[in-house]
């Protein structure tokens, strides 16, 4: 056989192997975590794991509710802060801003996405936590533990999800055809009316997907949240309370709990929960985005 063709064949096989590996990697992670989490799943009933508030591994009590609620509080707060700001910015960039402004802002958004999470965490400790402790909490008459808590975590996280919501929304808005806008404008609608009634209506599924992706990114973020959220395993009742999200639990306790039975299994169950939630959210968002790309929606 011709050497050139042989090279082509061999390289093609290697590429195929890499591709199959990428497909399998996710399932490997899922199965690996499931196997390691199965001891606790078979010992403790799932309802107790999910809905019990009692977390004392030494006594064999593994109630994940404080961690699940902690994750939800922080993530939902971050999403509530990030969504309006990101959407309005994105609409402005794609509908009103000139080319120069758009080109100038894009690298800044990319940079926002590129800053490591420990740096965000440190910034939270240096700027957000003291602000809450010295200014916001006294002004609202709220009690905090030195400013650390859900609010600090939510603010830091919201900045971290700006870039993802902004860039996905931007792509979705750009995919709305110009004909549609022109029809609306030619009927005498103002630019904002066109955006509100035509562009946003058309882009609604895509914006939903952008928000879901942002939420899921926030859901698994570890270091930045861990550094500012206070880490107290109690179900929170206000944004000024400290919380203990699932990723922080994994990061703080993993590697040091080998002597207590089922503890490592419990921590890997926490990782499995994160992975499952992120999986479901990502699949929903991607399905919507793929449909938009194909022009179905």
């Amino acid at each position: 056989m011709n050497l050139r063709i042989l090279k082509d064949k061999i390289s093609s096989r290697l590429m195929l192997a890499a591709t199959v590996f990428a497909c399998l990697l996710f399932f490997l992670i899922l199965i690996g975590l499931y196997i390691r989490a199965s001891p606790i799943l078979s010992t403790v009933p799932i309802t107790e794991l999910l809905f019990s508030e009692e977390w004392s591994p030494n006594a064999g009590k593994f109630g994940f509710l404080p961690f699940i609620m902690g994750t939800l509080w922080v993530t939902v707060l971050a999403t509530i802060i990030a969504v309006p700001i990101s959407l309005l910015s994105s609409i402005y960039l794609s509908e009103y801003a000139g080319v120069h402004l758009r080109e100038a802002v894009k690298p800044l958004i990319d940079l926002l996405a590129g800053i490591p999470s420990v740096v965000y965490g440190l910034w939270g400790v240096l700027a957000v936590v003291p602000f809450i402790k010295n200014t916001l909490a006294p002004a609202l008459g709220a009690e905090t533990i030195g400013g650390y808590g859900i609010l600090a975590g939510g603010i830091v996280l919201s900045i971290m999800v700006f870039p993802i919501i902004i860039s996905v929304t931007g792509e979705v808005l750009r995919s709305v055809s110009h004909d549609l806008r022109e029809v609306s404008l030619s009927l005498g609608a103002t630019k904002w009316q066109t955006i509100k009634h035509v562009v946003l209506r058309k882009a609604r599924p895509g914006i939903f997907a952008a928000i879901v992706l942002g939420f899921s990114r926030a859901f698994g973020e570890t270091m930045a949240v861990l550094m500012v959220v206070g880490n107290v395993p109690k179900v929170p009742s206000s944004v000024f309370d400290p919380a203990y999200p699932l990723p922080a639990l994994i990061a703080n306790t993993f590697g040091e709990m080998m002597s207590i039975p089922l503890y490592d299994s419990a921590i890997l169950l926490a990782a499995l929960m994160l992975l499952t939630v992120v999986l479901v959210f990502n699949i929903i968002a991607r399905m919507v985005l793929i449909k938009i790309e194909r022009g179905v929606i």
């Binding site: 990428a22 996710f26 992670i29 859901f219 994994i250 921590i267 890997l268 992120v278 699949i283």
Partner: peptide, 27 residues
């Protein structure tokens, strides 16, 4: 295969890094 790969890559892209860490440590 290529659609599946893209979906898998998207999911991996969204997988939190702490999960990679926990999985790596398990291995």
């Amino acid at each position: 295969l290529s659609n599946l790969t893209r979906l898998c890559l998207d999911i991996l892209w969204g997988t939190p890094s702490i999960v990679y860490g926990a999985f790596g440590f398990t291995v």
